[in-house]
């Protein structure tokens, strides 16, 4: 029992640390990739190639004066970024980060907890995430913040629907809500993207909207809303909001890799490597490779596409993505009926 607790504790700390470090270096990567896509060099002063830049930014964030506006609701003002950060860190719990390690006769799956309704948990926590933005924006008592908060909530609610519907089609295909089972099903090249291309397209568009990333970054919208919901925030509270966005991006990339790109499964490698422990570690590395590609993809899209207008955003969500997702469910049903199960 104690060994089990220690193992879970180590896993929790590891997942927490990894998501923080990845989010930290995502800020660096974002600036570097933005620069490279725009024919610039990006940060290159702090340490070799600027790799200490995130540390410098973090120190700066902590050193800044902390301002709580006099007209704001103080407790909600503090609750906003805390909630955003908290929910962002909570999502990593159900993701299978790798296969199972066998030490002695003990099995150690590289997943904090395998809830049998992992996907529902994920959707639930992501939905709570919007409260961080909403509360923070409302508590600031600033019209830009309020507009950002309203946009954030309406956007997230609209896109969660399409995202849920896209996942329903996936769940119809896999027949399980457990993320571990879904990952384990996709051995070799049986990645879900092959069976659910339309669902994947809908899911990734919604993932962009859910993480408030360009082209769906209307809640922040530097150019119109002066930063949107975090206009009034300063110091590390602002840092938490920005940080939560990067953690969300990291988790969405992990979810996309797990749901549609085989998770920790690797094609071909099983033929050459037979030690299950090595295979499990390699699987984690492979998962992270996919995940980093998707983080890069998120940034690549951000620095390519312009922002949506608000009505375009709503049209896309309600008039295109939801009907498309419903069509996808119907299509999946018909195909499943015709071909028995899709495998």
């Amino acid at each position: 029992m104690l060994a089990f607790l220690i193992y879970k504790l180590i896993l929790v700390v590891a997942v927490f640390a990894v998501s923080l470090v990845v989010a930290m270096y995502s800020t660096y990567a974002e600036r570097k990739i933005a620069a490279f896509l725009q024919d610039r060099l990006g940060p290159n002063r702090a340490g070799p190639f600027g790799i200490l830049q995130p540390l410098a930014d973090g120190v700066k964030m902590f050193m800044k004066e902390e301002i709580i506006p006099g007209t704001s609701n103080k407790w909600l003002f503090i609750l906003g970024p805390s909630l955003a950060m908290f929910t962002a860190c909570m999502t990593g719990v159900v993701i299978p980060w790798g296969g199972t390690l066998t030490i002695g006769d003990q099995q150690y799956p590289m997943q904090i907890t395998d809830i049998n309704i992992g996907i529902l948990y994920l959707l639930g926590v992501v939905s709570i995430g919007v409260y961080g933005i909403m509360i923070g924006g409302w508590a600031s008592n600033n019209k830009y913040s309020l507009l950002g908060a309203i946009r954030a909530s309406s956007q997230m609610i609209s896109y969660e629907l399409a995202m849920g519907l896209a996942i329903i089609a996936l769940v119809m295909h896999t027949g399980t809500l457990s993320l571990r089972d879904i990952a384990a099903m996709q051995t070799g090249w049986h990645w879900n993207i092959v069976y659910q291309p339309l669902g994947f397209l809908i899911f990734i568009v919604c993932a962009f909207a859910e993480t408030n990333r360009a082209p769906f970054d209307l809640p922040e919208c530097e150019t119109e809303l002066v930063g949107g919901y975090h206009t009034e925030y300063s110091s590390m509270k602002l840092g938490f909001y920005l940080f939560a966005e990067y953690i969300n991006m990291f988790i969405s990339s992990a979810v996309i890799s797990t749901l549609y790109f085989g998770g920790y499964n690797m094609p071909f490698v099983g033929r050459f490597v037979h030690d299950p422990n090595v295979l499990a570690v390699l699987g984690s590395v492979f998962l992270f490779a996919k995940l980093f590609f998707f983080i890069f993809f998120f940034m690549w899209v951000r620095w390519t596409l312009p922002r949506f207008r608000y009505d375009q955003l709503m049209n896309l969500g309600w008039k295109i993505l939801i009907p498309l997702a419903l069509f996808n469910i119907a299509l999946t049903g018909v195909l499943m009926y015709l071909g028995g199960r899709l495998h």
């Binding site: 896509l37 024919d39 060099l41 899209v301 390519t304 596409l305």
Partner: peptide
């Protein structure tokens, strides 16, 4: 159109940078 745009931005990723250190 989105893919075409992304191809263009990616091509800039590997271009010589204009910045002078």
């Amino acid at each position: 159109a989105i893919l075409a745009g992304m191809r263009i931005t990616l091509s800039h990723f590997f271009k010589r940078k204009a910045t002078v250190n």
